[in-house]
Design a protein around this nucleic acid. Structure first.
Lengths: 238, 238
DNA sequence: GCCGTTGTTTGACACGCATCAATGCCGGCC
DNA sequence: GGCCGGCATTGATGCGTGTCAAACAACGGC
């Protein structure tokens, strides 16, 4: 069950690391007054593990900003095949597509907390604040560029390259969030990775374990430690 | 060699079909004064068959709007593998990513003509005209949604489904441009289709010819005629 | 006309990854 | 503590595509 409450996030300079991320990514474009206006609009919501955030095709009533946990975004084919189009980490936005309905579904991999704004309120705010729109547009074109990289990965990379690039990609995203850990946190299941990379879960598992046997990575619960970055990167670039 | 001249395009209501497309897609957000300001900025350019429009990683100095012909957009891996991330038809925009450099390369499949604006001038225009930015943002999120569909196609569809969806997708795009023909125009080579669908050119050729043998399509020079839409659609949805 | 070039078709074969299946591991719960 | 359900691992096997190769068609140049 989703729990709802006023959003308790802070502002840049305050203690909350997650919310710092959020403000850097979008709200930097807003004045203090506008930020507090946004604050009044915002609701804090929580989703438990495996809970659906929104379904593919559902009306897009809310815009979400993840403040904790990881969500998976996916499209489903009628026969059950699934493609995960992305993972949403703290700081990421969800439901920004301008259409009336969500083009993909989203659910919580671990417990997820998020700030939620009504789409209409958000839309009004955008109309009054062009600079915020510009920020959103940059975000969207960045996402587009990532999606095109992912198309190259899905269409033209081998299984091993896919897995390696996934690990490096996740590492980069976590370090960007300020996690200084050498271990890359991977809360998603093998099946999730497989559906993201266009592989079977068995191939993901085999590849991961082969890399571990070759001492390039070390498998740990809910993650991997990258021990030999050189050997990881070279076969990908070549 | 690229040929450059002042852009001769017209406005909505005038004869030029290609430019009508262009104005519907973006310039509808502009006033008549702004349109003519844009006109003065615009250059008309032509690229001959196989000519490069811009290279992956090159400085993004120009924004292009295709007015005739078809271009392919692609990323290259160091070892020569190629992924075509999209085909640009008349009316489409190129080089809109906000970054300093192009994240993908583009070249002309047939002879291509386009309107070209300097990025800085275009950027200034955007700053003065929020509504235009909104239009661009909608365009970008639409592209993002298409890219996610393509990810699903690349990761989870079989070769036959890929080819069928490509044909239906191209048909939809041409009909949207007002081409009433029953024949889908396909100016790209088998290799181009293969690199778009994550297949080998032989698999594309075999699949196309099998569909023709099953009398679902008819192969014609530079295109196909879809004769049995029912049988084409059913296996895709299922 | 003929030939060289470029793209397409078709066949034979190989291989990477999916599929099927069995076992192992771990955490939750009664 | 022991059972049970979900996820991960590992092996055996098969199939869908890729790869290699040869023949063919279309086209332009001389």
């Amino acid at each position: 069950m989703v729990s709802v409450s006023p959003c308790p996030h802070g502002y840049p300079g305050e203690a909350c690391i997650v919310c710092k991320v959020r403000h850097i990514s979008v709200c930097a474009a807003l004045s203090a007054t506008e930020l507090s206006a946004l604050d009044e609009l915002a609701q804090h919501v929580r989703f438990s593990q495996r809970e659906t955030i929104f379904l593919q095709g559902a009306d897009a009533d809310w815009v979400y900003n993840i403040t904790g946990g990881v969500a998976r975004l996916y499209t489903l084919l009628p026969d059950g095949r699934r493609q995960i189009v992305g993972f949403a980490l703290p700081g990421d936005f969800l439901g920004l597509a301008m259409g009336k309905t969500h083009p993909f579904g989203a659910d919580a991999i671990e417990q997820v907390s998020a700030c939620r704004f009504s789409r209409t309120a958000f839309s009004l705010l955008i109309d009054r604040k062009p600079h915020l729109l510009r920020r959103l547009h940059e975000f969207a074109t960045h996402e587009l560029s990532l999606a095109q990289d992912q198309m190259t990965l899905l269409g033209r990379r081998t299984a091993e390259e896919k897995v390696i690039m996934f690990l490096l990609g996740m590492r980069e995203r976590w370090t960007r969030l300020g996690s200084a850990s050498v271990t890359v946190h991977l809360p998603m299941s093998r099946q999730d990775m497989a559906d993201f990379l266009g592989l079977s879960l068995e191939t993901v598992s085999r590849t991961l374990n082969r890399l571990a046997r070759e001492k390039v990575i070390i498998l740990v619960p809910d993650g991997v430690r990258i021990t030999d970055l050189e050997r990881l990167i070279r076969p990908v670039a070549a």
